[in-house]
Simulated scan of single mutants.
Amino acid sequence: MLAVAVMLGALSSCGISATSGWNGDVPGLGEQKRTNFESPFGPLYPADIAVLVAVSQAGYWEAPTSELVARESTNPKVKAVAAQLSREHHALNMYNEAAAARVHVQLPLSATPQQEGWRKQIEAATGDERDRLYVQLTRAAHGSVYMKVATVRATTQNDIVRSLAEVATEYVSRHMGLLESTGLANLDSLAVHSGTDAEYQPTPSPAEWVFGAGLALAAAIGTLLVIRLASRQIEEVTEDGVAIE
């Protein structure tokens, strides 16, 4: 049973790391993610840096994806919304880069692997399916980022980050409304759980379920073999006439 518990714990950890979003470590940031800094604009804490990183990474996948949908969609509502999101993400990225430079925060150079997966998923789809995926994935991602940005807007002690968070809150809130206006946002894309610290995450893929089930089965079989061997050893000792206390 102990072995099973250990394996399940390891499996849970693997699941979390495999689906983490921008909340995870960002290559190149190093100690910035874990240390607060004093600056002329007020102290800079990890949550402040995380918002700058989140806005940057969102732009890397949402701006080009929106451009694609605006160019190729045949749905007038989706086409107009995507065009507006594309323009505004470029503007927000410029504002975010200027803010990061003023507080000396190094921004990532690309979106997260998960976000790149969403972008490729949308690009691979066509027609109505692409419109649906675009609206649902971007709405869900906006919802998660919105909570982060709004929290920092209310609590940060850094003037530069506060201004950036205020602008970002307005942009993200407007984008959620625009995406919802298409009528393609379903319950899954609107359900963002504030109790977790991870960005919107899709359910595990069939391959991940199979891998997890295989690990659990291997752990169970291993435990049964250990118990079986231990039982045989006890039986052999008993047959030899050795007293067991």
Rank of each mutant, 00 (worst) to 15 (best):
Y200V: 08
G212E: 08
D188W: 07
A220P: 00
T196F: 14
G195T: 09
I221K: 07
A220Y: 05
D188L: 12
P206E: 02
A207L: 04
Q201N: 09
L190I: 12
F211P: 00
D188G: 05
A207G: 00
V210Y: 10
G212Q: 06
Q201E: 14
V210W: 09
A207S: 02
P202A: 01
T196H: 04
V210P: 00
D197W: 11
P204E: 02
A216N: 12
Y200K: 07
L217N: 05
V192W: 02
D197V: 13
A220F: 13
V192R: 13
W209I: 09
P206N: 07
D197M: 12
A218I: 13
A220Q: 04
D188Q: 12
G214P: 01
D188S: 09
P206L: 06
T203W: 10
L217G: 12
P204I: 03
Y200G: 06
P204W: 01
A207T: 02
F211D: 01
L190W: 08
E208Y: 02
A218G: 11
H193Q: 09
D188M: 06
V210N: 04
W209T: 06
D197L: 13
G222S: 10
G212S: 13
V192H: 12
G222E: 06
S194I: 06
E208S: 12
I221S: 13
T203R: 14
A191N: 14
G222I: 04
P202K: 00
L217P: 04
P204N: 02
G195H: 12
P206C: 05
P206I: 03
G214I: 00
L190P: 01
S194Q: 05
Y200A: 14
T203E: 15
G195M: 08
A220D: 01
P202M: 02
A216G: 13
L190M: 15
L217A: 15
T196Q: 09
Q201Y: 01
A198R: 15
L190H: 06
A219E: 02
A213C: 12
Q201I: 11
A213I: 10
D188V: 08
A207Q: 02
Q201P: 01
A198P: 00
E199P: 06
T196S: 10
A191H: 14
A198H: 12
F211H: 02
L215R: 07
G222D: 01
L190D: 09
S205G: 06
E199V: 02
T203D: 15
